[in-house]
């Protein structure tokens, strides 16, 4: 069973695939109109970033999949926003956009950010942001411009980050993805 990487149009979808390969796991890139049945057969699902907005675009079977997901899920950038949007949170246009470098302040390591320093530099590229988390989620980190840089629901094994852990410029990015991969059933 492979890890499915849902391509929602990110420049970095293939970089996610490469990072997983470097960490010794097999990933497969699938388009965003992938069926819920195929997703539920995966060992884990990763949702890429992308140029669209969760408030206006069609995400096919992804909302249904997320509401009843039984496998670990990691949402990145637009992926985090989609998780928030589908599970009862709220996504809005941020006051300021964030592109390039951003300093992430860790408030609580949780599962995803465990073993990381209290603050680190990450690469970001977004305008929309999560304004309200879905029920059952805890916020793990913030930056000057964005209140929720990472959140998770460890019981449901749904994790997400607003920044891009897959790119080289993000410090400790591989560690974050490694933390996620440890959630897979052995």
């Amino acid at each position: 069973m492979a890890i499915l990487i849902v391509d929602m149009g990110s420049q970095y979808t293939h970089v996610i695939w490469r990072t997983i390969r470097e960490l010794g796991q097999e990933g497969k890139i699938v388009p965003k109109d992938v069926s819920a049945a195929e997703l539920s057969k995966a060992s884990a699902v990763m949702l890429s970033g992308g140029p669209s907005s969760v408030n206006t675009d069609d995400f096919h079977s992804l909302p249904d999949f997320l509401r009843s997901a039984k496998v670990p899920v990691l949402g990145i950038c637009l992926g985090q926003q989609l998780i928030a949007h589908c599970l009862g949170g709220k996504v809005v246009k941020g006051k300021n956009a964030e592109y390039g470098i951003s300093k992430i302040e860790v408030d609580k390591p949780g599962t995803m950010l465990s073993g990381l320093p209290k603050s680190f530099n990450a690469w970001v590229s977004h305008f929309d942001e999560v304004a309200k988390m879905p029920p059952g989620f805890v916020s793990l980190a913030h930056s000057d411009t964005c209140k929720i840089e990472a959140m998770e629901n460890p019981q449901k094994k749904i994790f997400s980050v607003q920044f891009h852990p897959e790119v080289w410029h993000t410090e400790h990015g591989e560690k974050i993805i490694g933390n996620f991969l440890r959630q897979l059933q052995p």
Binding site: D7, M8, G9, Q11, T13, R18, K32
Partner: peptide, 16 residues
């Protein structure tokens, strides 16, 4: 190489 076709766009990926 990969960045060439990634940045050229396709599917839901914009053409950079």
């Amino acid at each position: 190489i990969a960045p060439d076709w990634i940045e050229s766009g396709g599917g839901s990926r914009h053409t950079i």
